[in-house]
Write a protein that binds this DNA or RNA. Structure first.
Lengths: 328, 328
DNA sequence: GAAATAAATGTAATCGATTACAATTCGATT
DNA sequence: AATCGAATTGTAATCGATTACATTTATTTC
């Protein structure tokens, strides 16, 4: 692969002139410009990002931290991030941590090593202390999962309110025994959604019963299946379920479908509006987050930080999507 | 952020010695080593990948090209790629092309620019001519979708055989009217799966009817729904369907579920064994590809190419997973 | 046509690492 | 104590770009 020297020699100019042709096009005469462009074409030259980035000490790469791409919740957010990044000549590096600290370390080091210019973290399992340390020196944005009193700018939705509305919807349908399928409460979103759940129950003087609150070990379908089976085993069964994630809700639906005898219908509400949620039978009532927008705005925030600007936290609006799973 | 000069000064040694401490640890006395290590710790130093990579002219980044991460088919493959890459101190850059040529260009340029050391393409929509040109100068591997007579090494499964077995399974269940839901036949996998479908029908002297072969515009759920609706509209309805992708098959299932009156059950087989396929109602019979393995081996092939080795094409085994959708 | 000004181009330092080669130090051997 | 060889450390070139500053060339003005 040709380098800038060879182009310069071939065009009979200096490397500076070649560089000028490549970048801020000012101050180079049409004749030399075309000579250089010709040389570039002839030698099939592509400027090395490595050299450029070293000199400019930037990589134009953004890190996107997420626990796993298997959760479809992230796909639309990522599309938003990607589109916005590319529009500003940045690229993104999708980093699955699989909730493993050693992976996290690798990615944090990439930022320190100047291999990435900033980070958008969507990973609830991230080590917040280490992330905060990183954020002292490098641009970092939290997306979706965030820290309430932290210093890192975030974009998210009002999980508490959304959960409250979801559960209120179930109550309005006449349900008085409403279960919650949630994940580990070390995650803020889980705590917030539980608070919303409890607020709705309290408001309508319904009891909050511990045996109707099931904590799962993860968000994969099978945990939803298992959680629902546990709830169905109880002598006093809930008539409705709010799950903090569509994946869990879909697993719960599956468990209900498998229990042929349980003829009393159980209403279900999920959270995220993943694409699969309209393919289930029945289709799933859920909370829709503006995921694409969230991705776009998170990226704009990050690009702002990279430029050294101050950015404000953002809380986006959500929406309750009513489908068959609460129409039984 | 400190650089290697500052460490050298602080430790009272030359940059060469610092570099030696960082890399091939030989030939540096214990005393100097600990002096240097102390300086590194004190200044909180992290070597810049940019400088290192420029000098070594490698980036230790692998590009993974795929049309979209929204198709769960890719998630397990990506896990395999990622694990293998990380084990060899490489990282991966997930590149969604969204089937847009301009995106593709960006990513190809990253390789030419030395920002990535090689490419694994899983994108059926990739511009094969341009990819072939790239492959003349840079390491490239095809994963899943491939080119039969091309020069680029590939890893895949035998789509024709898998399709043949899937359709044969439907025939053995007594179905004689078997429809095919497939995507655009510009993709090799679609052509191969159609061939398998036709081979099975021919073998059992069943007619191949054009009106039972439906071509979709994409692999998203809704295209499967639409395809099935079209098939159900026909006066002579098929009794079974083979779809070339689980996403299409799940959409087809949905369409069938929505047609309350159509009481005659329709058997369905998909392809890929994505995680959703065991969450549908009924659960989906499908072809399982060893996706994780495929990702691992694709990466090993690519790393081989990067080292300059020759690598052989690989065809992995698949498996028919029989579930409820063919047990009606 | 000479001087002043503007435009175009070149020279060389720089970014942060690696590494061939040279120089130095050290200990062992005689 | 002198010599030799091995081990350690340093010097400086290098990777491929960008850019401040210097220099050359072209254009304008009187």
């Amino acid at each position: 692969m040709a380098n800038i020297q060879q182009i310069a020699k071939r065009a009979g100019v200096s490397v500076a002139t070649v560089s000028r042709v490549l970048n801020h096009a000012t101050s180079v005469s049409p004749k030399t410009r075309s000579k250089v462009e010709e040389a570039i074409k002839e030698l099939n030259y592509e400027p090395s990002m490595l050299g450029r980035n070293l000199r400019n000490s930037e990589s134009r790469l953004l890190l996107v931290l997420l626990p796993t791409i298997a959760n479809p919740f992230y796909t639309e957010i990522i599309n938003g991030i990607q589109d916005t990044a590319i529009a500003s000549d940045y690229n993104i590096l999708l980093c699955e941590t699989d909730s493993k600290p050693e992976r996290e370390n690798i990615y944090f080091n990439m930022v320190k090593n100047k291999l990435a210019d900033g980070v958008i973290s969507m990973d609830p399992t991230v080590n917040m202390q280490r992330l905060n340390e990183l954020a002292e020196h490098y641009p970092v944005i939290l997306c979706s999962e965030y820290e309430e009193k932290g210093d890192i700018p975030y974009i998210t939705v009002d999980s508490e309110l959304a959960a409250y509305q979801a559960v209120k919807h179930l109550i309005k349908l006449g349900n008085e025994k409403i279960a919650l399928i949630t994940s580990d409460e070390k995650f803020l979103y889980a705590r917030m959604r539980r608070l919303g759940y409890e607020r709705a129950l309290k408001e309508f003087d319904l009891p909050i019963r511990d045996e109707w609150i099931y904590h799962t070990k993860g968000l994969e379908f099978q945990y939803g299946v298992h959680a629902m089976r546990m709830l169905l085993k109880q002598e006093d069964k809930p008539t409705a379920v709010f799950a903090v994630s569509d994946t869990l809700a879909i697993g719960a639906l599956k468990a209900i479908n498998m229990e042929r005898e349980s003829s009393d219908p159980i209403a279900i509400v999920g959270f995220d509006n993943i694409s699969f949620s309209s393919m289930t039978n029945p289709t799933l009532t859920t909370i829709s987050q503006p995921m694409y927008t969230m991705g776009c705005q998170a990226t704009e925030m990050l690009l702002g930080r990279i430029k050294g600007e101050k950015v404000e936290n953002i809380v986006l609006d959500h929406e309750l999507i009513i489908r068959e799973s609460t129409m039984v």
